[in-house]
Design a binder for these strands. Structure first.
Lengths: 328, 328
DNA sequence: ACAGTATTGTCATACGTATGCATACAGCGC
DNA sequence: GCGCTGTATGCATACGTATGACAATACTGT
């Protein structure tokens, strides 16, 4: 039923080995024979089996993108990753990272991929160590893992958040709140640290009841805004650890009849496409997400092909001033 | 370097064949031996090679999800598909459907997947015929292909759009515009037909300058709204072929200072999560996307395992009245 | 104790491709 | 016509797993 290289060989009147060589353009096969083989392959509609090829060469030219399906940030990153990998003759496979790691470990180590891009790795995750132990090349994207032995690509989260802190201070805010991401992610930690640094410099305190910490999703933003504003002395400005959170905050504010930026300033992080929509016009920090994704893909291929060592790339961020911030 | 079943066999003091059987829980291996093998596998950190397994069994337990990366609708569908496949012991692989079909054909036919879910298939696409010819099982999701030999799962697009048409008529609109999706998709065609049927029944015409046709994305909505409203006698209501388009229309309306629904009524289709956000509160038609995705995944697995024939499932839709519609 | 059967494990091979090595053959100089 | 070189192709095998056929062992009843 399936057409194999043996079928092609029979039709072209050569051996299977010659078919393999001919189709790869091996110079040891005459142009004449190559042509004949190619025609036979075409006629039969031959498609080389990735399984056979992979088994033989111990490489699949496939790369796993490991992400939490719920984290919508990666949707924007798939195109640049896909295209960069394509250019380098690699394919992308999406693996969902769920709570139970067991299946994921296996899927990464079953030899069906040559490497992985980890996008949503938690600092506490054992995965990077496991992969390193098994010599499966991988890079971090938008994360820095607890494991330092792998290349990473990330935005300058510390500087970016610090810039937001400085902005809020400059605008005269003193009661400032923050909706943070998970503390066991590098972005969660770094964005917190940068922001705190700015407030510290201005001698502005960040009491516990002005800190809300949860996931990187819209829902968290909704809850965060509501919770923070319910306090005795509610903040006049809220920094959200990423744009999805910020948009959730804006949504809840609208529902509660809270004016932004009239009643409260809201600032996000990442500058996803949606942030620029007129419905939001979110003031935020731009991470060069496309460039980062492309770089990560490139680094991974280099790593797989043994061309580089460990390298940590940090991309500069840029404050994007839109319409959700105002003086205190 | 890589741990194989031979290594496990050596350590457990049995043959490779026994390892294979033991790990699959074959009754022909004593519980005692199974335990010993399992321990050895554990000790060595053995992970079965998908390549070897696939080559031997001619099945990979992997299913391709074929989608255009730009079509954000599928992001919402990945979780139900992923989970349903997981339950049935299958894995999901995302393949980007780009303009050049060549690479895609190969990736589907290289025996690295057992089947495919086609989510963005164009009516003109040769892919379904190609897959059918090669006996690669597949199902259509949210589409009906020109090829009728494969199962399909879709919403009742005709009835849904007709309901929107009826609604607009009931609200007293007579100058009605529409922003349609590509005419070589079944959704594009069916949603157009249903809407036209409703207008026909009410003797309301749909002149060419009130029809804008483009892709299923936010950008198309922006352009569509602007174009339609620029006409001499602009429409007082606009039906958008899906929610992304509708949101694009809302965005552009905001930028242009056009009030919705004060100046113009806007209705979408699908009821994606975002449609309910307070920034939009979009009146739309709900497709049971989750249930559809789950069903498609289930059907595909049944098809792969030879349990069913061809079956076309159509899910009922439901009008969701929010805040973007008003009387003429 | 023996034949007969059930149980447990091994052997050998297939899956489809890639590749080191061997071979056949053409061309060449003498 | 002989041996030599070099090139085009074929042969054989490896990759890791699964499985049908078979062998070895234990167990049963008489």
């Amino acid at each position: 039923m399936t057409v194999t290289s043996h079928d092609v060989a029979r039709l072209a009147g050569v051996s299977q080995a010659t078919v393999s060589r001919a189709l790869r353009g091996d110079a040891r096969v005459t142009a004449d024979t190559q042509e004949r083989v190619r025609e036979a392959a075409q006629a039969l509609g031959y498609v080389r089996s990735e399984l056979g090829r992979g088994l033989s060469t111990r490489s699949t030219h496939r790369v796993a993108l490991v992400a939490e399906l719920e984290n919508t940030l990666y949707h924007q990153l798939m195109r640049p990753i896909h295209d960069e990998l394509g250019k380098r003759d690699y394919r992308m496979v999406l693996l969902a990272e769920d709570s139970d790691d067991a299946g994921l470990h296996e899927r990464l180590l079953d030899r069906s991929v040559d490497g992985a891009i980890l996008m949503t790795s938690r600092l506490s995750s054992a995965l990077p160590f496991e992969l390193a132990r098994r010599n499966l090349p991988f890079v971090f994207l938008n994360r820095v893992g607890a494991f330092a032995g792998a290349p990473s690509v990330s935005a300058d989260n510390f500087a970016g958040s610090r810039a937001v802190g400085d902005l809020l201070v400059r605008l005269g805010h003193t009661r400032i709140g923050v909706i943070l991401g998970p503390s066991d992610t590098s972005t969660g930690r770094d964005r917190e640290a940068g922001f705190r640094a700015a407030l510290d410099d201005a001698d502005i305190s960040l009491p516990r009841n002005r800190v809300f910490r949860r996931e990187y999703d819209e829902e968290s933003g909704r809850m965060g805004l509501e919770t923070l504003l319910a306090a005795n002395k509610p903040p006049t400005a809220i920094f959200c650890a990423n744009d999805f959170v910020a948009i959730g905050a804006l949504n809840r504010a609208t529902e509660l009849g809270v004016a932004v930026p009239g009643d409260v300033t809201v600032v996000g992080f990442d500058d996803i496409d949606m942030a620029a929509w007129p419905a939001f016009r979110l003031t935020t920090v731009r991470s060069p997400l496309m460039a980062m994704a492309e770089r990560a893909a490139g680094l991974l291929v280099d790593l797989i092909e043994g061309k580089i060592g460990t390298e940590h790339d940090i991309f500069a961020t840029e404050l994007v001033l839109r319409s959700t911030h105002a003086p205190a």
